[in-house]
Nucleic acid binder design. Structure first.
Lengths: 125, 125
DNA sequence: AGCCTGTATCGACAAACATCGATACAAGAG
DNA sequence: CTCTTGTATCGATGTTTGTCGATACAGGCT
């Protein structure tokens, strides 16, 4: 688990939380952010993330995350690892089971970045 | 250009604009959204998008989008096509030049999806 | 200790992707 | 019409990615 070392990418998040319509992304920020979006670029991972995020208690056991999919258990495990290394989720072992939860700060950062430039639909004022 | 047919993916956007923490994504929504995030999963495309979004007038000529990168012109053209097919930008030819602009509705949809479940940092009330 | 169940890692393989140079297409200039 | 410049498409190539079965690791039982 990420407890014992190998700080995930997002934890070091330095700058860039403003909408990207404000100013162009630097190369470094773009590289880091693209790794997070890459983690979201697979339908299985997107569903995994939403399953975890919407699960009661804010966390889900891996054993509950395998049934909904048509892919093998190692594949689910791989996808969870990708999400974890992108800083989107974290996990902890409790006895026999491993629980995953969403890291809201990372989601919030990406969400803020995509804030669209104001158009007729947001600011209907 | 996307004017004359082949409706881009995002244009058909049916549902899913609520934060994914609310309820799990369906398979179809996940597939469609993952294609949009895939378009954001490359550092060059992310920088292209931010260059376009932050450009004065809200649009940028392709000729202004090549200089900032170390990759070839065909590669930039390819990335712009990916962004366009994901419904993130659209373009139009005006005389010799082609101009690209961001489609804010698509960005807004992704941004809303990533709205993090409320934590201490957003709702500090 | 030995077993059983839940989860992660490994190694392999096919499909998808980023990139390039060459080339085609579009449109204004001479 | 021909030349030149801006942009897109094509075909090839090396790399990355998603998936699997086999296997290793972790921890609770008996």
């Amino acid at each position: 688990m990420s407890k014992q070392g190998g700080l995930p990418l997002a934890e070091q998040g330095t700058s860039c939380c403003a909408p990207m319509a404000r100013e162009p992304l630097g190369e470094d920020d773009a590289a880091e952010l693209s790794r997070m979006f890459k983690a979201l670029s697979d339908p299985v991972r997107l569903r995994l993330l939403s399953l975890i995020a919407s699960h009661e208690g804010g966390e889900a056991c891996v054993c509950e995350l395998i049934g909904p999919f048509d892919v093998s258990q190692p594949t689910i495990s791989h996808h969870l690892k990708v999400l974890r290394e992108a800083g989107l989720v974290d996990c902890e072992r409790r006895g026999t089971w491993v629980y995953y939860w969403v890291l809201p700060a990372t989601l919030a950062r990406l969400s803020a970045l995509l804030q669209a430039p104001a158009t007729a639909m947001e600011v209907s004022a």
